[in-house]
Amino acid sequence: MENYLARMLLTSELDDPVFFAQVHQTIMDLEKKRVEHFNLHGPANPGYVTLMGELNMAYLQANDSTSELEVAKQIFEITKALYGLEDEVTIESQIALANSYLDDDRNDEAQKIATELLKRDWSEKEGPSYDLYLDVVCLQADIHHKKELFTKELPLRLHVLTILEEFEGSANNQSIIARAAYGYCLEKMKRYREALEQYITIRAFLDNEKELSTHAEKIGLMAHIGRCYHKIGKFEESKMAYQWALRESITLYGHASPLTVKMKKITSTYSLKE
């Protein structure tokens, strides 16, 4: 499941020159390893698939959707040849391929895969794991989100959250991530009061789960909380949320960072709207 807390980010991590350099160095290193592995062992082996998976994620981080998609296509073809279409490894790579199509704005190709996967009988005892089923539902929700079909997305988000809470509990990492996706969809639908309830719950969990999110994601979440408070007319609470986010950004990243600059602009804009 995608880390939907990353959708709360106010600026791209690639705006940070250090992070940008690290991502592209990682790509260079992985490409070198990939070529070496290919020359020694060829592509039809699990080690090559693992390397390609790491490379796919690196291209995703670099926002290079074309390269990400090409790698995802290769991974799917290799896993299909190695394990067959029914194996969980292949299904996982097929879901990743659909997500890469979506990242490359090729919604129809992503939808074709989602439709095919949703036709499976996921209740079979010897069939794929239920975790993969939830990933497919999230994929379909992501496609609806990309098309701004939020009324179709919302019940899928709630379905995933309900299942995860029932089997894993509300404080489980996956449940918190699913709640973030649900809340974000509510916000997109301008159902700010309901979105705020979800965001406040997430914030409480994050105070206990320190490793679940980055500082930038927590700042982004608080900015979304501030926005929702403002939209429902609770201006004092909104101001406090924005001020917290701004202070955190200055403390952690400095006055000149892209995140702090963005937070100053947001705080100033919403202060004028009171």
Rank of each mutant, 00 (worst) to 15 (best):
Q140I: 01
A141C: 04
I143P: 00
I143K: 13
H144I: 00
K147G: 00
E148L: 06
L149Y: 09
F150R: 02
F150A: 03
T151N: 13
T151C: 05
P155T: 10
L156M: 13
R157L: 10
L158R: 08
H159P: 00
H159Q: 15
H159A: 09
H159N: 12
V160D: 01
V160F: 02
L164G: 04
E165P: 05
E168P: 01
E168D: 08
N172M: 05
N172E: 11
N172Q: 09
S175L: 10
S175M: 12
S175N: 10
I176M: 04
I176Y: 09
I176Q: 03
I177G: 01
A178W: 00
A178P: 02
R179Q: 13
R179F: 03
A180P: 02
A181D: 04
A181Q: 00
Y182A: 07
G183L: 10
Y184T: 05
L186E: 02
E187K: 14
E187H: 11
K188M: 13
M189P: 15
M189Y: 08
K190E: 15
K190D: 14
R191W: 04
R193S: 15
E194Q: 15
E194M: 06
A195Y: 10
Q198S: 14
I200H: 11
T201R: 11
I202E: 08
I202D: 11
A204E: 15
F205T: 06
